[in-house]
């Protein structure tokens, strides 16, 4: 059984004059514990698909299923719960809150899950230690390198123990050495915790390094 599946999914963006079809009937099934790389050229619909998996967006038609349950009927409250507990997202631009320290950024995810202040500060420190940032707890994002920022965002993504990690070009802003390090960490998350990893990238080499399988997108369709 799949942990995450997109069944015949389309996603259209209606604009004034025209309608852009970012996804045009995509069916993808991801097994638990699988490391899947999604590759494709810019504009092929990779981010759109990942946002649907991440519960940030809803398909125009078709269905996203998590652990066999459809997200189509979920209320906005249930969707936020899904984003909180079931999936963790990592972005190319890190998306850390610039006015919060590394520890506060991670703790924020724990706060949304209802953890008390003391508990979440401790857990945030542990999580940051896990990604090798034990000496950067109280640094603001601007005081961290790109690789370090991305590691904070990984710590934040796994804070509430999601079964799936969704990474949208996490190495896009990093040099090849940092990029390799980030991918090591993600691969480690799968090895240690059995997490499912979905990695979006346009880098063929990175995509193949740790992945069990590669899904190619082109103009909103899965290529065979």
């Amino acid at each position: 059984m799949s942990i995450l599946e997109a069944v015949n999914v389309t996603r259209e963006y209606r604009m004034k004059a025209e309608t852009v079809r970012a996804l045009n009937g995509v069916t993808v099934r991801i097994a638990p514990g699988e490391f899947v790389s999604i590759i494709g050229t810019s504009g092929s619909g990779k981010s759109t698909l990942l946002n649907l998996f991440g519960g940030l967006d809803r398909p125009t038609s078709g269905e996203i299923r998590f652990d066999g349950r459809s997200l189509s009927t979920a209320s906005s409250r249930e969707m936020s719960r899904y984003r909180l507990e079931s999936v963790g997202m990592i972005f190319q631009s890190f998306n850390l809150i610039p006015t919060m320290t590394a520890r506060e950024n991670v703790a924020l995810a724990l706060a949304f899950a209802g953890a008390g202040r003391q508990v979440r500060l401790e857990q945030a420190a542990e999580l940051l230690t896990r990604v090798g940032l034990q000496n950067r707890l109280d640094h603001l994002p601007t005081e961290l390198s790109g690789g370090e920022q991305q590691r904070v965002s990984i710590a934040r993504a796994i804070a509430n123990h999601p079964r799936v990690l969704l990474a949208d070009e996490p190495t896009g802003n990093l040099d090849s050495r940092r990029a390799a390090e980030i991918l090591e960490i993600l691969a480690g998350m799968r090895e240690a915790d059995g997490r499912t990893i979905i990695l979006v990238t346009h880098d063929q080499q990175l995509a193949t390094r740790h992945a069990d399988r590669i899904v190619r997108l082109r103009d909103g369709l899965v290529e065979d």
Binding site: L56, M89, N95, L108, A109, F112, A113, R156
Partner: peptide, 13 residues
């Protein structure tokens, strides 16, 4: 952007 981040990591409306 901050609001978007909060929503992405599980903040509810």
């Amino acid at each position: 952007r901050e609001i978007g981040i909060m929503k992405a990591i599980g903040g509810s409306d």
